[in-house]
Amino acid sequence: MTTTDDRLADPVSGPTTEILQLTDVGKSYGNVHALRGVSMTVRQGEITCVLGDNGAGKSTLIKIIAGLHQHSEGVVRVNGEEVSFSSPRESLARGIATVYQDLALVPLMSVWRNFFMGAELRKGPLRSLDTATMKRVANEELLRMGIDIPDLERPVGSLSGGQRQCIAIARAVYFGAKVLILDEPTAALGVKQSGVVLKYVARARDAGLGVVFITHNPHHAYLVGNHFVILNRGRVSLDASRSEIGLDQLTNEMAGGAELEALGHELGSSLAEVEADGDGERALRPS
C-alpha cells in the first residue's frame, strides 16, 4: 500500500475557485428522505471525499450531481449558476463527468476505441475514423497520467480492474471535465491497484479538476483528500478540511464513533473493546 505521501495530499498552491456548490440539497423518494440538508462545496484543484456507510445516501448524491435524478429540495450551483439537471448529458455539458463503478467501457472493444467512444475523431472526405491519431492521442493521454497500457489494440475486458478504472478517468479528463465524480473507484480493487488509482486521482486533481471521491474506505480517502464529508442516514454528519481532522478521527467518525460510544454506555461494557472491534472491521473490509 502506498504510504501517506505529502506530495499526494498537498493541495495545489494558489486560490481555489468553488466550482460546484450544494446548499441544503435534499431528495425524497415518495415518503422516504434519502438525502436531507446536504451542503458541500467542490473546489478546483481539490479532492472532496464523500464517505459513508451503505445506505448513507452516497449514490443518491452522485445521481443528483450526475443528472440521473433531480433534487427535490435545496440549490445546486455550478460556477455560481443555479442548475437542475434532467439528464446526464446536461451534467456533462457543464463539465461534470461521472465515472461509475461499472465504468461505461465496452469489454470487447479495444482500448483506443473505448477511449474515443461517442466522440470519435474523423478525417477525409469520407469522414472515416482517424485511427492513427486516435491511437496516438489515447496512448499519450494514458502515459501522461502515468498509465502504461502497452497494447492499445487489446480488448478492455482483458485488462485489470485498476487499468480499466484509469482509462475511464483519463477519458473524462481528456474530454474536458472540470468536475470529476468517482463512484467508489477503489472498492473492487486490491491494495496495489488501489494505490495506482489513487495516484491517478491525485494527478487529475493536480491537473486542476475538482474531484469528488466517493468511498467507504477512510484510509483511501485520507491519502488523497483535501476535504472530507461524511454522510450518515442521509445527513452530513461531518464536514471538515484536512487541517481540521486526522485519520484516526476520520476513521472513528466514519465508523459511527458517537453511536458506538452511546452503545457502550448503554451496555455498560468496555467501550474500548467495542470501539476497537468496530474500527478493525471497517478498516479491513474494502481490501
Partner: peptide
C-alpha cells in the same frame, strides 16, 4: 477480494503497478 498484480487475463505483470517511477512519466511522444 484479493487481486494480484499479475493479472490472469493479460498473463503478464500489470504494467501500471509494476513501475515505481510513474510519477515521472514522459509527456513526450510515446
Amino acid at each position: 477480494m484479493t487481486q494480484t498484480a499479475h493479472s490472469p487475463a493479460s498473463g503478464r505483470p500489470d504494467p501500471s503497478s509494476s513501475s515505481p517511477s510513474t510519477g515521472a512519466a514522459p509527456a513526450g511522444p510515446p
